[in-house]
């Protein structure tokens, strides 16, 4: 796998007078094509600011971000970068505006001035990819939170991006909605090789990524396997995060002298290991 996104010495501050206390400090990170990267960290650590650099919504004050060979600092590159990297936000209610789902999904394509028959094909395909085909004629307000969020993802997929960034897409959803969205996103990555960058506060969701990036006060404090991060009290403490409940339990059992594999990621696996 080659590097799709390269972040080099990225620093950022919003106002010039705050240049001494940047929101992002000297971040270096590369993301490979097809990778599923989770970004975690406390409120205000710079997660949202970081990902807004990845499709040129924000431009580095120092350092640079290169997406598939295109520097986000060069304005001529931005339309190309934004087609490659789509973004889904936290609140499903602020992202949908058309009167029926398929119109919403078609919005970006109409702006690209594609012929009608191509729009039709792409909308159908995008809805199918998130399992929303049967809701094509629904008004968005009749959908559940999870369905709304999947419709928003379909709107991005219709543009055929190479990478999708999701900024806490499940934090306003109920547990069922969370699972629906998470499953759809994982399928995009595993079955369709989409590059996914996923910001979340839900550590159970972060368990399923290929690589986890933890930010604290604008700096990366960990980049690596989620299993390694969640089993290390030192890393967790540094990032001020609590591990997923399953990892907390596995850790507690090991500390109590019970032999269970550290790689356990679900209650079912744990029950299996205990009953063996």
């Amino acid at each position: 796998m080659s590097d799709f996104i390269e972040i080099e010495n990225l620093s950022f501050w919003y106002k010039a007078e705050n240049a001494e206390t940047p929101i992002l400090k000297d971040i270096n990170l590369s993301i490979k094509r097809g990778e599923f990267v989770a970004v975690v960290g406390p409120n205000g650590c710079g997660k949202s600011t970081l990902i807004r650099h990845l499709n040129g919504l924000l431009i580095p004050r120092r350092g640079r971000v290169v997406v598939d060979g295109l520097d986000t600092g060069m304005e001529n590159n931005l339309p190309f970068i934004r087609r490659k990297v789509g973004m889904v936000f936290q609140n499903p209610d602020t992202q949908l505006f058309a009167s029926v789902v398929e119109e919403d999904v078609a919005f970006g394509l109409e702006n690209m001035c594609l012929p009608q028959f191509q729009i039709r094909d792409r909308v159908d395909e995008a809805l199918a990819r998130v399992g929303m085909s049967e809701y094509r004629d629904y008004p968005p307000h009749r959908l559940s939170g999870g369905q709304k969020q999947k419709a928003a993802i379909a709107g991005i997929l219709a543009m055929r991006p190479e990478c999708v960034i999701l900024d806490e897409p499940t934090s306003m959803l109920d547990p069922r909605g969370k699972r629906e969205v998470m499953e759809a996103v994982r399928a995009l990555n595993t079955c369709q090789q989409m590059t996914v960058i996923y910001v979340t506060h839900d550590m159970t969701e972060a368990l399923y990524c290929d690589r986890l990036v933890a930010l604290v006060e604008g700096q990366t404090v960990f980049t690596g396997l989620p299993g390694e991060f969640f089993m290390s009290p030192e890393h967790l403490c540094r990032a001020g995060l609590r591990p997923p409940a399953i990892k907390e339990l596995v850790r507690a059992l090991i500390d109590a002298g019970i032999e269970v594999p550290t790689g356990i990621n679900s209650p079912e696996e744990l029950v299996g290991a205990i009953c063996r």
């Binding site: 960290g41 406390p42 409120n43 806490e168 609590r242």
Partner: peptide
């Protein structure tokens, strides 16, 4: 507590 981090 919706949308808050652990310490929040």
């Amino acid at each position: 507590t919706a949308g808050m981090d652990y310490s929040g």
